[in-house]
Nucleic acid binder design. Sequence first.
DNA 1: ACAAACTAACTATCTGGTTAGTTATAACCT
DNA 2: AGGTTATAACTAACCAGATAGTTAGTTTGT
Lengths: 192, 192
Amino acid sequence: MRNSEASKERILEAAMAEFSAYGIAGARVDRIAKAAGCNKNLIYIYFESKEKLFTTVLEKNLVRVYQELAFASQDLASYAGRLFDFAIANPDLMRLLAWSNLEQAATSSNERVTSRDAKIAELQKAQETGQIAETFTPDFLLTAIMTLATGWTAANPFGLLHDPQATKHPAALRKDLEKAVRLLTAHTSEDS
Amino acid sequence: MRNSEASKERILEAAMAEFSAYGIAGARVDRIAKAAGCNKNLIYIYFESKEKLFTTVLEKNLVRVYQELAFASQDLASYAGRLFDFAIANPDLMRLLAWSNLEQAATSSNERVTSRDAKIAELQKAQETGQIAETFTPDFLLTAIMTLATGWTAANPFGLLHDPQATKHPAALRKDLEKAVRLLTAHTSEDS
DNA sequence: ACAAACTAACTATCTGGTTAGTTATAACCT
DNA sequence: AGGTTATAACTAACCAGATAGTTAGTTTGT
């Protein structure tokens, strides 16, 4: 047989590039087919519609995040650092996330909500056991850490607000990021 | 005359709503015309093209940010708080910014770059005079503050990562945000 | 009468999705 | 081994609706 799995894979790769560059509305199925070196109809046979192809690409790549990045409430600085590295290493995925957020407002997959709830619970526990300070609510902490760690990607609403060269030498940024997270989670003299 | 200025205004308002909802590629000129209650051709007479209409809408609304939000390197916590309030009060503009960032990668207006450079310079000076700590580079501080302050808007790449109800009672978030900025800029015991 | 403000109808092109058909491969039969 | 067949993999050509942008003309105030 003329390998169908390989074809699917090529389509998914081409779709990733296309969607990350143009979003759902801006993506062109013809362009994806051409880049994948296959007939457009194959896309519809394998993935049903443009929108479903998008969510397939997103889910597939999002799995990697959950697998590669274990949340660690006892060492949030390291988690933030790893998330930062991942974001810098995968700008396409960050763009995909941003597109999804803007274009698929309604769709908030159960998986993501569950994952969020678990993180919040972990943070709460870490605060109760004194591993991290109670300076901030778990809710604030989570969003703060996530946005800080991904603030240097294309997903930043202010775009290239940051020095475009900054991400070429990410080591310094990462150090500062970890320092910042440590500050936000450290016990202070005012603590009871 | 049948007021042309008012028509332009109505078009700009309708365009704001349309672009913020669907982005450039997803926006429909017909829909904008209908919402503005005018003929589609008027849009092309007044604004030349869909893309130019978008940038016009963006620039017009961005001016408000620069006018209403004076950067204050000597009180960054307050600046962050005001930026947060503004972002919460103007979700459409935040979305517009996000779209612009994704869809117009190349276009980075001089105004924005200049404004950034000015802020960096101010931060540097504030550090030299000891107004804020030198714990972080001005570059890191600026991006950190901007992303933190806008992390609870639709512009967040992780979408409704945060509790959807959180932004309904923003006062608590704002307090935490200001506290966080104070932590990041405060002199610590380790300082020389 | 004149020009600015506005409109209805049109067009060329694009685009997601479909149809109808072809080619390669493996299993089966003799 | 050679021929037959079923089917999975793939393709070229097509279509209907949508869409940015245009044209040619009408209304309205002065």
